[in-house]
Nucleic acid binder design. Structure first.
Lengths: 170, 170
DNA sequence: GAGATACGTCAGTCATGTTGACGTATCCTG
DNA sequence: CAGGATACGTCAACATGACTGACGTATCTC
């Protein structure tokens, strides 16, 4: 348990990073920022009788059409039983459809229906409004800083998975 | 539903903020960054038979000793029944203690016991390790950008509450 | 003294996660 | 081509942490 608190040093040249205050500020902003952003779409989801778990699935399926169940399981890091319930409900209500894998027919490929794409687009629109407003008020340089810090919070092993959501077809 | 997508413009001078890609990147990094950070302490909490709800209460009580129940309710934005259960468990297991309010005896002031302070310190130590590492790898300028964007995600009405956690005695 | 406020609590429900066990179709490899 | 590994589905039981609605008590304020 090495102590990584800031050594007493001159106020102007503070290394900043390791002081308790800065860390608590990050924890708090992350907590409130994250919860307020996710809260933003609860009402829209409730209109359709869906919850946040459904949105997460919808989101990733929108992001990577023909995602397999196994890939989605890795992204969400939940059990297949939990995901199974969510996918079943989404399929029953006609938000997603599935097709057998082409290269491997054991796989199930996930896609949004038109209805599902419409809902995802509306949810995205609301998230974009909030996030765009925060981006604009913070400024472009802040946005790249925001990304860099968050990337540093993702363990090495998971980074490829997250980065792979972009690129290729995004 | 005004369309706020990027107008076709020169690649170098992109306003950046409103493009779908940048927004999705923010959503994804926020999701993975937040969940990975919070996951980091689950094991430690489980050792004591506690969950994340307990940690949130512990955290804010550590941050603002003699916080009232009402203030904590506002911070957590949950019902008093939910909070009541959490506080009862924390008190039964000797992590917190309460005292009647001085100026208003209807209030209940919340404080950590020594045991509670020890646990909170250990949890904080683990969060600080993760967050410091992300801060250092991103650099100081990125950290302030990170804060600014997150502040922009917090609705006006809630900002005072969040900022008040700092200052005064922090 | 009357009403508002701060807090507590009983009872029931819901959303979302968990473990563990087991079944089937398909793929791959010796 | 047989046998094991893999991808997915599913049954059952349970934990956590949220919710609503209703009601009770102590205390403050006017």
């Amino acid at each position: 348990m090495t102590d990584v608190s800031r050594p007493a040093n001159s106020p102007g040249a503070s290394p900043l990073f390791l002081r308790e205050d800065e860390v608590r500020r990050g924890i708090e902003l992350l907590y409130f920022g994250y919860t307020r952003l996710t809260n933003a779409i609860d009402q829209e989801l409730a209109k359709h009788g869906l919850g946040r778990a459904h949105h997460r699935a919808l989101y990733f399926i929108a992001r990577r059409p023909d995602l397999t169940v196994g890939e989605l399981l890795k992204l969400l890091a939940i059990t297949k039983q939990s995901l199974g319930r969510v996918l079943k409900e989404l399929q029953d209500r006609d938000f997603i459809l599935t097709s057998p894998g082409i290269v491997d027919r054991r796989q199930k490929l996930l896609r949004l229906t038109e209805k599902g794409a419409g809902l995802e687009a509306e949810l995205f629109r609301q998230l974009r409004a909030k996030l765009s407003s925060a981006y604009v008020s913070a400024g472009q340089e802040s946005v790249t800083g925001f990304w860099h810090v968050l990337e540093g919070l993702i363990p090495e092993n998971d980074r490829k998975m997250v980065f792979d959501l972009r690129g290729e077809n995004a």
